[in-house]
Design a protein around this nucleic acid. Structure first.
Lengths: 203, 203, 203, 203
DNA sequence: AATGAATGAGCCTTCATTCAT
DNA sequence: GATGAATGAAGGCTCATTCAT
């Protein structure tokens, strides 16, 4: 499938390797998420994944490469989910789609797969994040046009930007206590609903 | 740089200190904002504020203490602004208050006073940030009740949480190009408006 | 790469081993020469010789051992050449022998067989280098006595030391551009000639 | 004198600093000489100079910068000595100048000031070494023309190249036992003498 | 009181060498 | 026997923080 990839993660050729990589990725997500890119140390990631530091470097030739890989994986997962949502979109009510968006974001969280707070990380990785963001916006805009056909492309893009920001709130409220959490998630759904409704032409 | 100081009236120590502290804070905001907490170095902050490193440490005994102070200052500024907004709230239309919220957030940005991306920084500083967040939520909930008297306290707090998240979007869209920016800010205002309107009982 | 090996006559192990070793030695010479002892990595030598790293270690149990082997091979080659030169020495003119020495050194260079700049490498290898040096001096002193029979053993050894140093210059000038190179090589020959002549008793 | 110098050694502003720098330079010369550039470690240089590693880096911002500084210092010292020799050259006999060259080289050695075996070191430092070499050749060629006026510029340069190589032998024989050493040094002088004489037109 | 210097802990990364399949 | 994977020791370098003048 893929032959050589310069500075990017190299995939293992033996069974054990895959397990290792999985452990590293998991630890990487954990540590990056907990501490942020700069404060995370390769040593800790290695330790937490039960790998020797040099082994970690065998698969991910640099800290940045590891972060890249984590982001990429998250991006793929998220984009896949979004595509799936889109396929279900036609015929959904505004209310349904509002809930679907929130559930989608919730799912992303639950899958411990995401990584790296949106902060620090300068340099090359930022480009990739930017591209990911654009792909997300694109996908969301598409969904919006699916459910509100009267939307122009431009308008749908603006709304997607807003929507993305709203959905970030899901991550924030996820840290609240269960009760508050439930209430807040319902409120976010409602917010999205009224927002979408306000953009739909009155029949 | 240092001049004679024989008979000349030397400013009272407090005065000099204040100037120094102000310079440090300004430099601190700059550097933290530009590079993030981890990548910012005390040496650079010292240099950029024209202070010797040891002097910097006289006023702020650690990097974290400096970040704390920066946050505190920002919090005070923000809370003051919020209080002021609250005093103007009574009698404002929903539309007016939606705009006012956005303008308020915009103002915060423009005043180079705020610092440190909400990420990295772990430890003690997080508590303070939490308290600041709560104070903000409190203030915003109050304003909401001011403009939508029918709101219960609980409901207003939920809405404040949502609103705060929406307002974070102002920072995000501020990085877009002027045209897009203007459009997006208008959209945020609209979003807030429809959200507030949805919570107001139909007369 | 690896083919079937069922009924096909597999070369005797020894044979295969020799090929491997030869490949490793060649790669070793290359890499050591290009990068120097320290900067050369066993991994690269393995890769460049098409050997697996573990196989390399089967033949040469350490980096130093490999360097040793390289030196030894070079020493043998050089000493053989010197012996051959010695056999041709009787009856040569001083001028002829001067040229022969330079050509001899030139030959050594051309045969990509030599390795490792005379620097770095500490430890055990230095002893071997020392012994090699002595063997060379010995051989050269012998040749000198062959062409200048009046030389005492002691004197011939002193002269050999000097001569060896002069010949190192061949390596240095070899890096010059062709034209300069030619001139400098001729000059070295002349230097050797006048040096030898100065030691020959006036007839 | 000098204000800022990017990646090069920074000179201390206080008394203590000069002492430190001197100690570092001495240790640097020692370690680089003993182990070669690659094998030398900053940690050892720091330790041997009684400095903390970070202090070392305060003055010399990188290993290469330190090596650079060492080379520069050596070059200056050597070139000064050569200039001085040149001023004494007019009127010297060939025999005298031969001895003077050897003494000059000997002096360089004795002044523990020189550094870094001519091996390893790739990159930027090699350029400087090259320039240094050329300056030396230039100076030596000048001296040769001083004592053998009939020399063309080109011829003197060729001879200087040869001479430089011969003089390297001084370093080599310096490692011999005193007795052998004395004999060899005398032989080098003689070699230089006959070489120079061979280039002088018969009167 | 102010400041340049000193420092040690720690980070990312590499590599010779040994395992385990 | 051959090979990819594993590893730990070490190296260059930075930075928050403390001394000493």
């Amino acid at each position: 499938m893929s032959t050589t990839r310069s500075a990017v993660a190299r995939e293992p050729k033996r069974q054990r390797g895959h397990i290792r990589v999985a452990a590293i990725i998991e630890a990487g997500v954990e540590v990056f998420t907990e501490k942020g890119y700069d404060a995370a140390t390769m040593t800790e990631i290695a330790a937490r994944s039960g790998t020797a530091i040099a082994s970690l470097y065998r698969f991910f030739p640099s800290k940045e490469a590891l972060a890249d890989a984590l982001l990429l994986q998250y991006a793929n997962y998220a984009l896949d989910g979004l595509a799936e949502l889109r396929s279900r979109a036609p015929g959904m009510t505004l209310d349904g789609i509002a809930g679907a968006f929130v559930d989608f974001r919730l799912e992303l969280q639950s899958q411990r797969r995401f990584a790296i707070s949106l902060a620090d990380t300068r340099g090359a990785i930022d480009d990739k994040r930017q591209r990911f963001r654009e792909a997300m916006l694109d996908g969301m805009a598409g969904i919006l046009r699916e459910v509100i056909p009267s939307l122009t492309k431009a308008k749908s893009e603006v709304m997607a930007t807003i929507l993305l920001q709203i959905l970030k709130g899901v991550a924030v409220v996820s840290q609240e206590k269960p009760t508050a959490r439930r209430v807040l998630l319902a409120e976010i759904k409602k917010l999205i609903y009224v927002y979408l409704a306000s953009a739909e032409p009155l029949v």
